[in-house]
Amino acid sequence: MSAILKINGTKKTFDEGLPPTLSELLNNLEIDAAMVVAEIDGEIIERKSFAQTELKEGMAIELIRFVGGG
């Protein structure tokens, strides 16, 4: 069953169903959790809670990825 998330303002369809948690979404997108700040529906999700954060159809997810240099 396909499902949709809005990621950084763009709708993304998951044909095989949603990844169950935020951690699994990041794995799916090949994003290193240590370098991302995540917000779901405007609420910041701390990194230690990524594995327990369940995803639901229609959620708006902002993923702010950091690269090194300063």
Binding site: M35, V37, R47
Partner: peptide, 9 residues
Amino acid sequence: ADQKQMLVE
């Protein structure tokens, strides 16, 4: 990058 993440979070 991981320090940036830590501060912003």
